[in-house]
């Protein structure tokens, strides 16, 4: 059987909010090491890669590797039924047709269970090659969400340029143009408020606002976001999830016609 219990059940609620607008359905692969999910959006422009390590759960048991195909809209509806402070357990038999979500209140006085039908999904997994990125920017996740939202008003693309001086976000369109520059933090008391840049070479790439805004739905999961960029390679936007894992989004660039 499979059982994964997470005292901080709100993490599951936040994960579903972070993927449900981008993906309609996805396979959750469960094994000894933990739970992973990899899926592309319908347009095959972006990819979500989620990793939750087994040692990050309060209880984790997986007798046999299993793949559970789920409609994420349905899963999101179920997780909305969990309280923010609830303990969440996901349970399934070997070769399951259904998965059960159990929500327990902190004081143990309320317990609810929701059973959901699984789907048979024939999704191909993509190999994500290891790469050394030319630029890696770490910045407050809320700031990144704000910039993506603000610049989306100007056009459907955002140019992200990174150099030793800092990182610049630009957009232009019918109403005009916008630039937001962030310098590397010189002195930060709180690590989560810092902007840090690791750069091998300066880069400048154009990305679709629509997808960046989908990615920022993960903002409640993490104080910081990491943007990794390289020539001839998709952007990686990564949010750490407590001490249990991370969610990564990959986005293909836009190029000059």
């Amino acid at each position: 059987m499979f059982e994964a219990r997470l005292a901080k059940g709100a993490i599951f609620k936040k994960i579903l909010e972070a993927v449900k607008d981008l993906l309609t359905e996805a396979s959750w692969d469960c094994g000894d090491m933990g739970i992973t999910l990899q899926a592309m959006d319908n347009a095959h422009v972006s990819l979500v890669s989620l990793n939750l390590r087994s040692d990050g759960f309060d209880k984790y048991r997986c007798d046999r590797n299993l793949t559970m195909g789920m409609n994420l809209g349905s899963m999101s509806k179920i997780l909305k039924c969990a309280g923010n402070d609830d303990i969440v357990t996901i349970r399934a038999q070997d070769n399951p047709d259904t998965v059960t979500f159990v929500f327990e209140s902190e004081n143990g006085e309320k317990q609810s269970d929701y059973e959901m039908k699984l789907m048979s999904l024939d999704l191909e997994h993509l190999q994500i090659p290891e790469t050394e990125y030319a630029c890696v920017v770490k910045m407050p996740a809320g700031e990144f969400a704000r910039i993506c939202r603000d610049l989306s008003q100007f056009g459907d693309s955002i140019v992200i340029s990174c150099s030793k001086q800092g990182v610049k976000f630009s957009a232009s369109g019918d109403i005009g143009s916008a630039n937001v520059k962030l310098a590397q933090s010189s002195n930060v008391d709180k690590e989560e408020e810092a902007v840090t840049i690791e750069m091998q070479e300066p880069v400048s790439f154009t990305y679709a606002c629509r997808y960046l805004n989908f990615f920022t739905k993960a903002t409640p999961l993490s104080a910081q976001v990491k943007l990794s960029m390289s020539p001839e390679y998709p952007l990686m936007v990564e949010y750490a999830i407590d001490d249990i894992g991370q969610i990564r989004y990959f986005l293909a660039p836009k190029i000059e016609d």
């Binding site: 592309m40 993509l126 190999q127 693309s157 998709p234 293909a252 190029i255």
Partner: peptide
């Protein structure tokens, strides 16, 4: 500008 597909960079396992 045109949007590249992710499958141009990442390939099936």
């Amino acid at each position: 500008m045109s949007q590249k597909s992710l499958t141009e960079f990442f390939h099936p396992r």
